[in-house]
């Protein structure tokens, strides 16, 4: 089987440090878009971004509307208890209507497409997360240095 003319492979490294649904999703879509365009993708989940790869939490990511100037409601309303869950469920419904996969599905798609998912060792210690709690798509728990080595030459996106 012959291979197409060797073009330098593009790579992106996306660092997910926040756990809001509206913060995780763009990162996953960027990574998926990279894979669809033949770009290698590496994801590094750290701090609150870890929530996206924790089995118990991945389906309950919320959207914080308080302090968000683009929120369709005043901050005083957005700050009421339970508001972020309401906002998240509204967003989920809308995404389901558009056939946008859930975060869990998205992670599966990313893994299938060859994107590499990593957890941050330091953040896991800080938040006392056991590697067994992570989704099976997470390839490994590594340090920042390891991640830089793995994704050498990649363009870095920090979210």
């Amino acid at each position: 089987m012959n291979v197409p003319a060797p073009t330098p492979t593009r790579r992106v490294a996306i660092i997910v440090s926040k756990g809001g649904m509206d913060e995780v999703f763009p990162a996953l879509i960027m990574a998926n878009g990279a894979r669809q365009s033949g770009i290698e993708a590496f994801l590094f989940f750290t701090f609150y971004g870890l929530d996206a790869i924790i089995d118990k939490k991945v389906d309950h990511l919320h959207v914080n509307m308080a302090g968000n100037p683009s929120a369709p409601m005043p901050t005083i309303v957005a700050g009421l208890p339970g508001m972020e869950a309401v906002a998240a469920s509204m967003m989920k419904r809308k995404m389901a209507k558009l056939d946008i996969p859930t975060v869990r599905e998205m992670l599966q798609i990313l893994d299938d497409s060859g994107a590499q998912l990593y957890g941050c060792e330091l953040a896991m210690k800080m938040f006392e997360v056991d590697p067994a709690e992570l989704l099976p798509q997470v390839k490994d728990v590594i340090t920042v240095g390891d991640f830089y080595d793995l994704s050498e030459g990649a363009q870095i996106i920090f979210t």
Partner: peptide
């Protein structure tokens, strides 16, 4: 890609293997 995988029954992983680099394109 999502439409192809859900419509043709070829899973994502296989799709990327069949058409390396950008599968849908």
């Amino acid at each position: 890609i999502r439409r192809i995988t859900s419509g043709s029954g070829v899973p994502t992983k296989e799709l990327y293997a069949l058409f390396p680099r950008a599968p849908a394109k």
